[in-house]
């Protein structure tokens, strides 16, 4: 029971990651795959931020009356990771647009079918 109370945040983060991951591998639509990827990454951020939280802590900005702060390091790491995430999404979407222009579709099975019948 104490495990459940102490770990549920991680479990839900993992569940969300896997929903995203499932979308990446299961979806046949190239945009939907990127949406899955973005959910996958965002949920990993939750894992990091959860570990930085300390009980009764506050945001790591010095102010009067506060002396317990959550750990700023995971926050910094995730700021960087968010940037990486949007960068990847943007490049992925640019590729999708070009794929649509050249092949007329963004469904994986139709793209494969085109390749088989030249």
């Amino acid at each position: 029971m104490s495990d459940a109370l102490g770990l549920y945040n991680y479990w839900i983060a993992i569940f969300l990651m896997m929903v995203g991951f499932y979308n990446v591998i299961a979806s046949g639509n190239l945009v939907k795959k990127l949406i899955g990827l973005s959910i996958f990454q965002t949920s990993v951020f939750l894992l990091y931020i959860t570990m930085g939280k300390v009980k009764d802590g506050t945001a790591p900005i010095l102010g009067d009356g506060y002396d317990t702060f959550s750990n700023p390091l995971p926050h910094v790491l995730i700021l960087t990771a968010i940037v990486v995430g949007i960068a990847t999404t943007a490049v992925g979407l640019a590729l999708v647009i070009r794929i649509q222009e050249h092949f007329g579709t963004i469904e994986e099975d139709e793209l494969i079918a085109q390749e088989d019948s030249p």
Binding site: F45, L46, I49, T50, G52, T58, A59, I82
Partner: peptide
């Protein structure tokens, strides 16, 4: 959620 977890910048 990040705000609740004290990560205001994030």
């Amino acid at each position: 959620i990040f705000t609740v977890l004290d990560a205001v910048d994030v």
